[in-house]
Amino acid sequence: MIFHLGELFCGPGGIGWGATHADINDPEYGIVHEWANDYDEDTCETYRHNICPDDPDSVYHGDIRTFDMDQLDPIDALAFGFPCNDYSVVGEQKGMDGTFGPLYTYGVKALKKFRPQWFLAENVGGLRSANEGKALKKILSELEGAGYKITPHLYKFEEYGIPQARHRLIIIGIRNDIDIEFKVPSPAPYAGIDNTCRNAIENPPIPADAFNNEPTRQSKQVVERLKHILPGQNAFTADLPDELKLNIKGAKISQIYKRLDPDKPSYTVTGSGGGGTHIYHWEEPRALTNRERARLQTFPDDFEFLGSKESVRKQIGMAVPCRGAKIIFEALLKCFAGIEYESVEASINE
């Protein structure tokens, strides 16, 4: 069974890459791109360029709230990483009351319209506590109401060999009339992988002519500040001279001027970048390049992001790690192919 995948809120192609590269050593089972949609133009260009260069018209740039789904071809699989701004722990946490909170309903609408055999929905772990837990309960109820058996699970991608501590709630749904049960793939097979950020960034060395690898420019003050910050420390835990301390009242976000610890996975790559929220190298007094950030998200070096340097930073930060998506899609394909694999109980708890 070759599944034709549609994607809403497709991003630059982390999910798309994982889906189209999923391989269970059975040529009868695979996933191919059918269409995708995103509201950001650069993101759509990146997706076209890397995921479906031979079919650029299958990627639709447009706001889902005014998008006409009638123009889309039939699909038998759907993925939607619905926008997480209102569910993120570092966001304003408006949940269902925010601009982006209700956008999951368009995923539900697509499920009812296309009746795909399965779907994958993705969001931040903060969704679990949004609106005192009511948001997640409502979303799960509506996904079930669309006619699907659902398996929500909090994936900690660093446990799956990904060089980044990234926790994401991923919901797999299989249509009710299909007698197949999805099982969450176990992280055990990935225990021996070196998922330190040093290994991800340095092995193999990034080629001099790599895409999206322009050096970052730091002000003299930032360079001086970083010289006093040890690996794993941030602007508030480091022993900084008074003239380099940050004059911030209220919340002291731990990722401000935080250097990576080279012997651990990176902290979460985000789309933000102002006010010291770039990810900072453990040794050199600078922020990471976009290519280094892309490596932490497990994008291959030949994956070229299009747009301005700032646009590319946002695209990388909003994506799902390619290899993480691939692991989940391969588990799904194995379920349909009847291939046993090591699994764990689904859980949305930390």
Rank of each mutant, 00 (worst) to 15 (best):
E224D: 14
E310I: 15
R65M: 13
R291M: 14
D302W: 05
G107Y: 08
P12C: 11
F9N: 00
K245R: 15
A77Q: 00
D242E: 15
F119L: 08
V312P: 05
Q218N: 10
K149D: 15
Q221R: 14
C52H: 03
L230T: 00
A238I: 00
Y29Q: 07
K245L: 01
P74G: 11
L169S: 04
D38N: 05
E304C: 15
G95F: 02
T105L: 15
D261I: 04
R175Y: 14
N290T: 11
A79S: 15
E345P: 02
E41H: 15
P189T: 05
N234V: 11
A165E: 07
Q117V: 00
E122T: 08
D40T: 12
D76M: 09
K252M: 14
D40K: 06
T105Q: 15
K94W: 00
P215N: 10
I171Y: 01
D194C: 05
T298D: 08
T105R: 14
K112A: 10
N131S: 12
A135H: 06
L226I: 01
W17Q: 13
N212D: 07
I316R: 01
D70M: 05
I328F: 04
Y39M: 06
E292K: 08
N212I: 03
T270H: 01
G91W: 00
P285E: 03
I206M: 11
D40M: 09
